[in-house]
């Protein structure tokens, strides 16, 4: 049963990923991205990471994709089709390099997978994550707030209109 759910979610995730890069319209790409993120949230639940799955839905599907859609529609670029690429070989070269990358990644990832062990499921994930964030990862956790602050200031500075003078 778990296997069936995994394959359904994986197939939808890969199909949506292809949709993101194959669609000409940016709005459709964003909507395919949403499907992709939701499938990954389902896979996280399958991997017993319920908290991260919920954060995935809230932050990625809720905030980031909405931000993308907002900007695409704000810019009025949703109907702007890309002109046919004068360099057709870019498509082929990109796909070939992608296949090479895929082979390399699988070659690198698979040997490590065999050593891992499967044990019983836990249920107090959130408590453990909270404890880890406030002990072992206290400094990265605090630095994240600095990153977000810098992002807020940077966004406002970049997006505001230039002051004349």
């Amino acid at each position: 049963m778990e296997m069936v759910i995994f394959f359904i979610l994986a197939a939808i995730a890969v199909a949506a990923g292809v949709g993101v890069i194959a669609q000409r319209s940016a709005v459709r790409s964003a909507l395919f991205l949403l499907v992709n993120f939701c499938c990954l949230a389902g896979l996280y639940i399958l991997l017993n990471a319920q908290f991260v799955a919920m954060v995935q839905v809230i932050v990625y599907a809720g905030a980031i994709v909405v931000l993308f859609l907002f900007v695409v529609m704000l810019l009025g670029m949703e109907r702007a089709e890309e002109t046919p690429d004068p360099r057709r070989y870019q498509w082929i070269a990109g796909s070939l390099l992608g296949l090479l990358l895929l082979a390399g990644l699988i070659w690198a990832l698979i040997p490590t997978a065999a050593e891992t062990v499967q044990t019983v499921t836990r249920s107090d994930d959130v408590r453990q994550i909270g404890a880890a964030l406030l002990t072992d990862f206290a400094i990265p956790f605090e630095l994240t707030s600095v990153v977000l602050l810098v992002a807020i200031i940077g966004t406002v500075v970049l997006a505001k209109k230039k002051l004349e003078g």
């Binding site: 890069i21 940016a26 790409s29 498509w91 990109g94 992608g98 990644l105 699988i106 990832l109």
Partner: peptide
């Protein structure tokens, strides 16, 4: 690995900054 590759190919072949 497949999803990462799809993302990398997307960066390589698309020219729309948003995509």
């Amino acid at each position: 690995a497949i999803l990462f590759t799809l993302g990398a190919v997307g960066v390589l072949i698309r020219r729309n900054a948003l995509v």
